[in-house]
Design a protein around this nucleic acid. Sequence first.
DNA 1: CATGAATGAGGGTTCATTCAT
DNA 2: GATGAATGAACCCTCATTCAT
Lengths: 193, 193, 193, 193
Amino acid sequence: MSEIEKNPRQRIIETALRLFYQQGFRATGINQIIAESNVAKATFYNHFPSKEQLCVAYLQARHTIWMDWLKKSVDSRPTPLARLLGIFDFIRDWMSNCDFRGCAFLNIASEIPCLDSDIRNEVVRHKDSLKGYISRLLAEVEDSGTTPLDTDRQQIVDMLYVLVEGAIVASQNYGQIWPIDAARQAADRLVKH
Amino acid sequence: MSEIEKNPRQRIIETALRLFYQQGFRATGINQIIAESNVAKATFYNHFPSKEQLCVAYLQARHTIWMDWLKKSVDSRPTPLARLLGIFDFIRDWMSNCDFRGCAFLNIASEIPCLDSDIRNEVVRHKDSLKGYISRLLAEVEDSGTTPLDTDRQQIVDMLYVLVEGAIVASQNYGQIWPIDAARQAADRLVKH
Amino acid sequence: MSEIEKNPRQRIIETALRLFYQQGFRATGINQIIAESNVAKATFYNHFPSKEQLCVAYLQARHTIWMDWLKKSVDSRPTPLARLLGIFDFIRDWMSNCDFRGCAFLNIASEIPCLDSDIRNEVVRHKDSLKGYISRLLAEVEDSGTTPLDTDRQQIVDMLYVLVEGAIVASQNYGQIWPIDAARQAADRLVKH
Amino acid sequence: MSEIEKNPRQRIIETALRLFYQQGFRATGINQIIAESNVAKATFYNHFPSKEQLCVAYLQARHTIWMDWLKKSVDSRPTPLARLLGIFDFIRDWMSNCDFRGCAFLNIASEIPCLDSDIRNEVVRHKDSLKGYISRLLAEVEDSGTTPLDTDRQQIVDMLYVLVEGAIVASQNYGQIWPIDAARQAADRLVKH
DNA sequence: CATGAATGAGGGTTCATTCAT
DNA sequence: GATGAATGAACCCTCATTCAT
């Protein structure tokens, strides 16, 4: 099925997935989006009331895609601990393949200072979802282990989540992999001790 | 000394420090900068060849200011360990006071995907400087301790740096303090064990 | 009968009566009209070939409504003279209740400079009708009076009509009632002397 | 001096005087204005912060021009009464020459329903000025007359003002001269009796 | 060295209308 | 007869930058 045969909304979303991520929100004009989506300007505005709302739809689509990537990668690991740390292995692969562009959500959030906006809400929802996923992976580790964690599990989750964020942005900043490895090692220690 | 008496370059830098940080790079127009700097448009371009170069100067100024804040806060702590962990205490205070706007450098980097640009280089320099500072604080902890760290010191530095970045961006995302506390606790553990 | 049960054409006309009058012709978009009429876009164009033709239908509907208002008000007065001057009393009430938005027909005419258009023709027809009504009311005054007017009746009609128009637009401009009172007083004098 | 040599602001105002009057406010796009003014788009916005503010400037320029026309015409009449009624003679000439486009101020007001806007304020100022002028002309008639008016002068002024407005809009509506003559005749009677 | 005027490309959005179904 | 999708031109406005003075 050629690109042109898909419905306009889908074409717009796919273009947004590419351009918003690679160029940023403000750096990407509506004109470029409609041009590369092969869509008339009014058609765009029939589907999305504003650029901001397209951004919300973009983040929702990105959330699904990225979480699928993550889960698929994590599920391929053999043990609960490998799956938990597999988050960092996935981030390693993903960051290597995205030219170290980093997290689509944090990048957008950097451009939108206002905390209570539809866009920022979508970012928080994504991170909540990620944190929930970390929590479930950690629970599996606990269940499988002989010795229980000596710390409140939620505290460990928070630490792991912070390590994930740090790994992403530090790797993005340097355009290098080592921050992810450092985060993985730190996570490994925090979980084991 | 009234604002108007300062030299134009300084007024522009101060305006940029405010606007670029609060609004973002692309969201801040040259017109707003020159208007709030009480400077003629051509005067601006006499001092800065482009908006991008102003951004570089902005980041350089911001680097000095932020590192001074950090060091002043850290220096007030009594022990080497308190100073090392004091980084997170500082971040707590700072983020509470900046409306959770987060790191000026990472925010700009999110808007500028191209890795090899003057702006991104300035961001890396800042983070290198921060990492070096962490390294020195950790060295003081080591020197004062009875038992040496059982890990390569640079590895710990990397972990701590990643925790710092994670603390900042996670706190920025949620508009809340808990990620900083989680990072501090993780750092505490990593250093002690 | 609920709004939604009326036929589409009627719903469109009623929406146009509201929006064209309150906002103006050009300021009111087709999209707003179809949205507030709960009508599909193509349904609209099935009933009206163009926005301009909707405007014609709007003016025709407005003519009926406004003349009914006028006549109902005038008919409630006891004497021929009271009825003639009752035009101004009606305008007083009407302008007070329409937020001084003024004459729907003159407002549209202001937006459509071209004299020979369907829209402008509709405006002229309305004003001819109004002038004819004034003429009939004046005839009743003449018939009831002992002394005939010393001037050609049509001349008086023209003067009264001009006073009516002046009362409306001056009151609209100022958002005040006094021009209508002034016009009434002038009409009173012109008829009596 | 060729058109192109005048300064941009003046060229823009002159274009606005032509286009806003002939086409209307909303019907005239900024693009047409800048094209016919031979001005770059940004140059336009350097001189006028918005289309609305250009409209204000347009009305101010129009006020000066129109009042000058009026006064020059009135001043050429021999007696106080001829000068007072000369207002209608001027309107006759003016309306014949403007293709019955009518009053620039009332036309704009028809497009801008909101009473408390910069534009509507400018309209009111113009009409206040016109009414003041009528008042002064009437005062001269009174001073020269043997018998004083048996009515409060301000009441007569209001009537005359309403007649002027009615003459303009009725003539505009019909594209004919007779409403102006009717208004003149009514004014004549009101002043004499 | 400092200035205000001017630029043209592009920003996001809405317009009245037509089309296949 | 009724519909929702799609159109492209036009809307008002802002952008970073350059120029003559």
